[in-house]
Design a protein around this nucleic acid. Structure first.
Length: 272
DNA sequence: AGGTTGACCTGTCAGC
DNA sequence: TGCTGACAGGTCAACC
């Protein structure tokens, strides 16, 4: 589930609540995508310095080392008051931070919790090396985005999901972004025009910012760290709306399969 | 090398 | 009610 907005909503909720707190205990549940990479006991005694984000990874910086957390398809972090307690169903990581208890709830277990001694560690570099520029950085421009798109003949939707041209755009927001930019998801990336690249970058920023402001999308189970549901899913213009009328022109929104993912688009507003 | 496909895992829902 | 298959927000290794 979690795309960049959900991860960012999580980060914003988490950082002020855990910065400065000391790790008192750690519990592990079933294995996730990768092993933790450290004896949980070595985390005990460390202090949280800050929480940042790179793409869809959350980075919890400790006074020694860093925890990388990925929410996968179904993960969310929950923070509650009170001491450590046993992990419940689908909770696969728990950390007692000062007076609080942080858990990763992830039914499908596509998520990850990885410890590294620093951001320079080979494992961290490997995990983060293929992540493209952050959507809100100034170094990402219509020109640089267009140059990246020129390099691929794959469908533009596929290229957005790959995260090399720009990171953080997942399956929901890719459909929304391409609708706003008026580009058909199936269009080969290298046939996106320069004016379209300008619209595309504006759409990426606009859609992701709106989703962050809305607290993310809670299609099934996403919740912010305090348990709040996001409501961007009620604001989508095409995602999940096959058969409905386009808000702009009234054409029937279509569903197409690309790879194993669903894409939604307006056949009139988004030319091939 | 770039592009495509399947695999990972579990829950939910529609259809029979 | 119970079974089966399709589908779900993301990567990543293995193949053409």
């Amino acid at each position: 589930m979690p795309e960049l907005p959900e991860v960012e909503v999580t980060r914003r909720g988490l950082e002020p609540q855990i910065a400065g707190l000391c790790v008192k205990s750690v519990l592990l549940g079933k294995p996730l995508r990768w092993p933790l990479g450290v004896d949980p006991q070595r985390l005990v005694g460390r202090t949280v310095v800050g929480v940042s984000r790179r793409g869809k990874y959350l980075l919890i910086a400790l006074d020694a080392g860093v925890l990388l957390i990925h929410l996968g398809m179904s993960g969310s972090l929950q923070l509650s008051e009170g001491p450590a307690r046993a992990l419940r169903a689908h909770e696969h990581f728990g950390a007692e931070l000062g007076p609080r208890w942080l858990t990763l709830l992830d039914p499908r277990r596509f998520g990850a919790v990885v410890w590294a001694d620093s951001m320079q560690s080979p494992q961290v570099k490997k995990l983060l090396q293929n992540i493209g520029p952050e959507p809100f950085t100034l170094e990402l421009t219509a020109d640089s985005l267009w140059a990246e798109l020129k390099r691929s003949r794959s469908p533009i939707k596929t290229v957005l999901l790959a995260g090399r041209a720009v990171c953080g755009v997942g399956n929901i927001y890719a459909s929304e972004v391409l609708y706003l930019a008026r580009i058909r998801p199936q269009r080969p990336a290298n046939r996106v025009t320069r004016p379209e690249a300008t619209r595309l970058l504006a759409a990426i920023r606009s859609v992701l910012q709106a989703a962050i402001d809305a607290g993310g999308s809670s299609l099934r189970d996403f919740r912010a760290t305090g348990g709040e549901l996001g409501h961007f899913q009620t604001m989508t213009r095409v995602y999940g709306r096959a058969g409905e009328g386009c808000q702009a022109c009234g054409s029937v929104i279509r569903l197409a399969r690309q790879g194993q993912r669903s894409s939604y688009f307006c056949p009139t507003c988004q030319p091939r």
